[in-house]
Design a binder for these strands. Structure first.
Lengths: 159, 159
DNA sequence: AACAGTTAGTTCCAATTAGGAACTGATAGT
DNA sequence: ACTATCAGTTCCTAATTGGAACTAACTGTT
């Protein structure tokens, strides 16, 4: 199976990764959340080559994560803005950044701290169940298979 | 800049992605959370080529996300198990899967539902501040720069 | 003893993708 | 006329991927 066909899988994670799972793409989104919107700004901040950046921005726009908005005519130029769909990826980025803070920082400590405005403390990101409001660990989750794919998704002999 | 040098950046997200940001790696971890541990099981479930799988498992083990544990001698064979560091990635996977459920499912609906055992309802994953317990949106976060990299990380003219 | 089966890889080659640098096109400012 | 801005595109080489076959170290079966 080719990576570019991964969106054919009946798996929400695989389909998500078909849009945002390529190299560089999550770093593009990081910069989007920092307010970066223009091609050259992404390129200079990331150091990614221009045609890879061009490809990633196109995929993100086609996938609905970013929208291409004209910010001037003559010459026509566009910038890239997060859509609601894109902003919904914030928890993914926050948890990944926190995971790096925890396990991969050097002596000088994490480069950025995310402060929760409402409580004034550094964010300790947790996974919360929106229904009951409690924090959730992996063991707290039970998987239910959609009957349509019954028996094809979960491993048979493991748990 | 080459993608393989991305772990040199003073950015926790970039360093996280250096370990888990390659194509296929998050799908390997998805299967780890489903209880898959052996090379051939990963290979058959994912459809990834064997040498790419070999490379990804090696990087995950070197990065501390998985540990290679012998499950038999003669011939010596190993399986791959999530470490605590690896289990800490669960929120990332849960949010990515939920994002796919929300935006990328087809007519038959999401293939799997994650049920929160404690409350019995399908998980509505949210980003929670562990300090105050409230749900967090992107706008609730203020970034503070580590003085050690002052002025080099955040964009100058955006927000 | 010979043979197939299991399992975690490695090796080989063609095809795709990435990295680096230069180039294009439309326009504004000097 | 010349330089600068800015979002790309084009070109070439180098690295990575996809696919298939192969290896090594056994176990179990005829």
């Amino acid at each position: 199976m080719r990576w570019q066909d991964i969106d054919q899988q009946p798996c929400s994670l695989a389909r998500s990764l078909a849009i945002i799972g390529d190299n560089w793409t999550l770093l593009v989104l990081r910069d989007c959340f920092l307010g970066v919107r223009r091609f050259d700004d992404f390129q200079q901040r990331l150091g990614v080559t221009r045609h890879v950046l061009s490809d990633r921005l196109r995929k993100l726009a086609e996938g609905g994560v970013l929208e291409k908005v004209a910010y001037q005519e003559r010459p026509l130029r566009h910038e890239y803005r997060l859509t609601t769909m894109g902003r919904d990826l914030y928890p993914v980025i926050a948890h990944l950044a926190q995971w790096g803070d925890k396990y991969l920082a050097d002596e000088a400590g994490p480069p950025l701290t995310r402060v929760h405005r409402q409580c004034g403390e550094p964010l300790e990101a947790k996974l919360q169940c929106g229904h009951c409001g409690e924090s959730v660990e992996p063991r707290d989750i039970r998987l239910e298979e959609n009957p349509h794919w019954a028996g094809t998704l979960l491993p048979t002999q493991a748990g």
